[in-house]
Design a protein around this nucleic acid. Structure first.
Length: 641
RNA sequence: GCCUCGGUGGCUAAGUGGUAAAGCGUCGGAUUCGUAAUCCGCAGGUCAGGGGUUCAAUUCCCCUCCGGGGCUCCA
């Protein structure tokens, strides 16, 4: 008997007979572990539990608690979905069905789109199939045979297309479940059997193009999500419900912040007075921090003549997204980006190397003709304001500048109450401009900078813009959703197009490095994210109305006005509710408006020159001195609470 | 832009081949009240717009616009 040595994650070693499967190994360690295992990693490669162990290796078992479990489970659930669909709709042609961060989907070619009832039927059938508890079985097949199978038996041109595009493969793998009743081309791995899926939900259906290509076949995509335990599904559904409740498109108009448009222009929101106060607070903070960090704030026009966009290259590559304006025979364009203006401002004079870095910043409103289908509340609109900045610098200043930006990003997000955000570096894509040295220096500077700040990051290989590498920052909100906010991009394109120079120590012209960056991204979107993050309950410093004063009867109106006046003078945003409603009603309204402080004043308060304060804990403090209250609130505002 | 589902007063909506409930909100009146909805009343809709079928269309059909979900795009 030949034995091989297997190293486990705790660094212990265990010997097992050569050729035994990973499941055997798991059983040897503990039957409970075997039962809990869904798949495994052998020398960092994901495999099935039935994978034979042929040589010394490192093995990590994947249980419900592993990070990979969710994807494997959902991928298997996608197969179960496909098997349910082909049973219910025999003419449906399965195409692809991966797991994604939000669960899984499977695309089918069908004659008729799935209805709501169809989805319910599919979910029911899926649960039946899961209950059958049949194993997932892997089978290796020569690729030619696989092609023949899909051409002749299944008559599925999509699978044939996938197979024919596989380079240099002799065999491919199939996975079947339901005792062979359903099989699908798949790399795997899969869970040992269907019943490992403890909870599944078919979420919705929509259409999608084959290979995401609008010119190709339109497919029906079914989305779902699976979990290793029913509680997690419940939690997830609750999160979705919570997300619905936080929807800024509902909360925005409700809190009188803004509304999105239809009759006055899709993608062109109206920001109401209270929403504007919030934006102003966000801008004020921006201004303060940028001044501290040595940025120079500029302003550039909303329109430029055609020639500018010719120079910048937008006319060649971005025209579809731009709003043209014809003015007395001349063609103008509304700016979709702020860059050209900033380039021209830099070019107004000759810079010496001593003057760099030069940091130019602008809260610039841009307009982009986004396709109607992508518009969504304030998240995706056609006119929005970027907290834009372009930094011009010497090559050796790149790293330091990026460090500064990262520190600024960290400061911004923590001030706005986010707890977690993640950095990604995107490297050079296939189609790109610029020199190898330039890319290397820039990419390296990005990495060094992040490392210097001591943050972890992930690399997105080849995901950079054509004009340079970049750092993207994803922020996680209160219910765990991710939003890409900041982007810090090196730009090799604009310096060339606008012939951007500085005079070096040698008296010669040189190209500076340019970083393009935003922290909020788009102000309007950031506002919407804040609304959803806080479910409308904005921190005091951001609340458009920080305190509302409610008199108990008309006799107390004058005192209420006086209190508002005092608070106002102290820089606290206060209002009085002098409508004819009852006090209880007003309190309820103020609560619904999520105003942080509700102040009641009546005879007792007038007599003692105090106020009754109800805060967000919903407890009332009677007999509070106005000065005391002012001091308390001002302190919170200063501390961004 | 493509696929799909939808559009009934400011909002949430019920409903029907014979021109439309209700609640909230708005406005007016009464009430002047001690901590999460006081009572009464008025106003407000060419049922998204246009075309067609029909004796008759908000309802059935077609087109357009707008929105939701998804795809795509993101120099």
């Amino acid at each position: 008997m030949v034995e091989v040595k297997v190293k486990l994650p705790d660094n212990s070693e265990i010997a097992i007979e050569k050729g035994k499967t990973i499941l055997d190994l798991a059983n040897k360690i503990s039957p409970n572990l075997a039962k809990a295992s869904l798949a495994a990693k052998i020398d960092d490669k994901l495999v099935d539990l039935t994978y034979p162990i042929e040589q010394d290796c490192k093995i990590e078992l994947i249980t419900a608690r592993s990070d990979e479990a969710f994807h494997i489970l959902n991928h298997s659930a996608a197969h179960v979905l496909a098997s349910a669909v082909v049973e219910l709709f025999p003419e449906a042609k399965p195409t692809i069905g991966p797991s994604v961060d939000e669960g899984f989907y499977y695309d089918f070619e069908v004659k008729k789109p799935f209805s709501q009832e169809d989805l319910e039927k599919i979910e029911k059938k899926m649960i039946e199939i899961i209950e059958e508890d049949t194993p997932f079985i892997r089978e290796e097949v020569p690729i030619q045979e696989a092609i023949k199978y899909y051409e002749k038996v299944e008559k599925n041109k999509f699978k044939v297309e996938i197979l024919k595009e596989m380079p240099d493969v002799d065999t491919v793998s199939f996975y079947s479940h339901r005792n062979g009743k359903f099989k699908d081309l798949c790399r795997g791995p899969h869970i040992p059997s269907t019943k490992k899926i403890k909870a599944v939900k078919v979420l919705n259906a929509s259409s999608a193009f084959w290979r995401g290509d609008a010119k190709r076949e339109s497919l029906q995509r079914v989305y779902g999500i699976a979990f290793t335990d029913a509680k997690k599904l419940k939690k997830h559904l609750k999160m979705l419900e919570e997300a619905k409740k936080r929807d800024h498109r509902i909360l925005g108009p409700q809190l009188d912040l803004f509304d999105t448009a239809d009759e006055w222009g899709p993608g062109m929101p109206l920001i109401y007075p209270k929403g504007t106060i919030l934006l102003e607070v966000i801008k004020e903070f921006w201004k303060k921090e940028h001044k501290k960090a040595g940025y120079k704030v500029v302003q550039t026009p909303h329109l430029f003549k055609e020639i500018v966009w010719k120079t910048s290259g937008h006319l060649d590559y971005y025209l579809e997204n731009m709003y043209p304006v014809d003015a007395r025979g001349e063609r103008w364009y509304v700016k979709p980006m702020n860059c050209p203006g900033h380039m021209m401002i830099y070019n107004r004079k000759t810079y010496s190397y001593r003057e760099l870095p030069e940091r130019i910043a602008e809260m610039g409103t841009v307009y982009r003709y986004e396709l109607s289908g992508v518009l969504h509340g304030l998240f995706r609109i056609r006119g929005f304001t970027q907290d834009d900045s372009h930094i011009f610098m010497l090559p050796e200043q790149l790293e330091d500048e990026i460090v500064k930006i990262i520190e600024m990003v960290n400061h911004f997000y923590s001030v706005f109450g986010f707890k977690e955000w993640e950095f990604f570096i995107s490297t050079r894509p296939e189609k790109s401009i610029g020199t190898d040295e330039g890319w290397e220096h820039a990419t390296k500077s990005l990495m060094n900078a992040i490392e210097r700040v001591g943050i972890k990051y992930k690399i997105k290989q080849g995901d950079g813009a054509f004009y340079g590498p970049k750092i993207d920052v994803d922020v996680k909100d209160a219910i765990g959703r991710r939003w890409q906010l900041a982007t810090i991009q090196v730009d090799f394109n604009l310096p060339e197009r606008f012939d951007i120079n500085y005079i070096g120590e040698d008296g010669q012209k040189h190209r500076p490095f340019i970083i393009h960056r935003v922290i909020y991204g788009a102000l309007e979107r950031f506002l919407a994210i804040l609304v959803e993050h806080y479910a409308g309950k904005l921190p005091i410093w951001l609340s458009p109305v920080q305190a509302i004063v409610i008199p108990i009867t008309d006799e107390h109106i004058n005192y209420a006005k006086k209190v508002v006046e005092i608070l106002d003078k102290e820089g606290i945003r206060a209002e009085a509710d002098l409508s004819g409603e009852r006090m209880e009603y007003k309190i309820r309204q103020a609560n619904l408006q999520k105003i942080p402080y509700i102040i009641n004043v009546g005879g007792k308060e007038i007599e003692n020159n105090t106020i009754a304060v109800r805060d967000r804990t919903n407890k009332v403090r009677f007999g509070v001195k106005i000065e005391e209250f002012v001091k308390e609130v001002k302190e919170k505002i200063t501390n961004y609470e």
